[in-house]
Structures are given as C-alpha cells and as structure tokens.
Amino acid sequence: MSKIPQPARPAPRSARNTFAQAAATTATAQPVASEPTATLPDTPATAAPSATSSATPRQRKTASTPAKQATEKKRKAQTTDILLSLEEELKDRMVAALDHTRPRTGIKSQQQFIRTAIDQLCTKLETQYNNGEPFPAPADEIAI
C-alpha cells in the first residue's frame, strides 16, 4: 500500500427540508427595531473590495452580507409561512385568471392573489355565519 495519506472526505450534504427551514426562520425571527441605526459620517456605506484580496467577488459578497439578514428584510412583518399544494388544473386556472385580470384588479403576484382570495372568503363566511365579526381562535385540544 502507498504511504500517501487518504484525503479527508467532505461531510455528506443533508436533504433539504423546507418545513425545518420555515420553522427555523420563524423561531429565530426577531421584531424589527423602530429606529434605524445611525452610521458615522466618516464610514462609507459600502466598503470597496481590496485590490489585493484573493477572494472572488461572489465570496466577498457572501462574506459581507449574511444570508439571514437578507431574508429578514424581504419578509413582511407578522407573517407566517404555509405550504400549499394545488391540483394542476386549479393552479393553471389561477394563473390564467391572474394574467387576464391583472390590469383591472392590480393583483400582480400569485401570493397576492391567494391572500386576496383568503381575505374575501373569510369576510364572506364571517358575514354569513358570525354577523360580520371575526371568528374567535379555535380552542387548544384538551389532552386526556
């Protein structure tokens, strides 16, 4: 056998679990501060990359902006993620309706379309079955 040492093998990649990612995101999300952080006038807003740096532009960008911070800025306040599965026919129907009515409704995305549909159906059911008042939250299950 050779005296050359075996190279270290990389750790196996874990399978992507969107439920775990969503749970981790909502569990670690913190409320946004009401006052913006002030920066010193001497410090530049963005640091220019060093000419002598051996890192690629992508590596410099990744090192300077954490991914978690970027996702928190995109997330709307007080939101929660849900997983929604639709039949292909219903999805195609939604896309067609959205595309044909966009100029009249102002709804520009599928998420906005779904949020609007949920809001309208909840309002209809509250009007029909609860005198226009929001339904109370369901009670927690009782463990016996």
Rank of each mutant, 00 (worst) to 15 (best):
S2H: 10
I4N: 08
Q6L: 14
P7S: 09
P7G: 05
P10L: 03
P10A: 08
R16A: 12
R16C: 07
A20V: 10
A20T: 05
Q21C: 05
A23Q: 03
A23I: 01
A23R: 04
A23P: 00
T26H: 11
T26N: 04
T26Y: 03
T26W: 05
T28Q: 09
T28A: 15
A29P: 00
P31Q: 05
P31K: 01
S34W: 02
S34T: 08
T39C: 10
P41V: 00
D42K: 09
T43C: 13
T46G: 08
A47D: 07
S50T: 06
A51R: 10
T52E: 11
T56W: 09
P57T: 12
P57Y: 14
P57H: 12
R60L: 15
K61A: 12
K61N: 03
K61H: 04
A63E: 09
T65D: 06
T65I: 14
P66M: 05
Q69K: 13
A70I: 06
A70K: 06
A70W: 01
E72Q: 01
K73L: 12
K73R: 13
R75W: 00
R75A: 00
K76D: 04
D81L: 09
L86G: 10
L86W: 06
E87C: 10
E88L: 08
E89D: 13
L90I: 04
M94H: 05
V95I: 10
V95F: 05
V95G: 01
L98H: 03
H100L: 15
H100Y: 15
R104K: 14
T105F: 01
T105V: 03
K108A: 14
S109G: 02
Q110P: 07
Q110T: 14
Q111D: 09
Q111C: 02
R115V: 10
A117R: 05
A117H: 03
L121C: 06
T123G: 08
E126Y: 10
N131M: 02
G132L: 10
G132E: 10
E133M: 12
E133F: 07
F135P: 02
P136E: 01
A137S: 07
E141F: 13
I142L: 12
I142D: 13
A143T: 12
